[in-house]
Amino acid sequence: MSAMGPDSLSFVVVMYVGAFGLLVIGAIGMVMSNHLFRMVLALVIAEAGANLLLVLSGWRDGALAPILGTHAADVPMVDPVPQVLVLTAIVIGVGVQALAVSVLLKIHRIYGTLDVRALRRHLELDICRDAGMAPEGSREAPAGERPLPPPIPVADALRTAATDQTGATS
């Protein structure tokens, strides 16, 4: 721990807790939510957390911003490299979010819902239809490839039932 005394230690601890807190909350949000839009929001939070951690890795206690001219030249300055990395990371995050929102828009237009479970079923049905085959577990493609008994159309069943009575009575 640097010579700055105990309280600077608590500053860094607070910051680390903030960074990891954001990261974890973002992760929880992404995994547990059932609505795609909320997952994108959680992604925003997770990225903010990661960026905070990255800047923290360059922070030096008692050092100032790496801008010359605003303070005396020989004052210790914070490490500029992580800040550059974060600049890039933020812009990447925005790019990915914009793309995510636009794809969500198209999904909503086609399926009308953004619920993860419903979309998962839609995905499977669409892939099977696109490949030109019956989806797994349906009548045409039983899961275990065990052929199902042919369906008895309702009309015939009634007719056979009717003939049984007549047959039985005659």
Partner: peptide, 22 residues
């Protein structure tokens, strides 16, 4: 083998892929 592959396909069709990453 059939049962094993059925369960693995289940893994690949899981609702929430990010859970596996986590």
């Amino acid at each position: 083998v059939d049962m094993l592959s059925f369960s693995t396909v289940g893994v690949y069709r899981y609702v929430q892929p990010t859970l596996f990453l986590l």
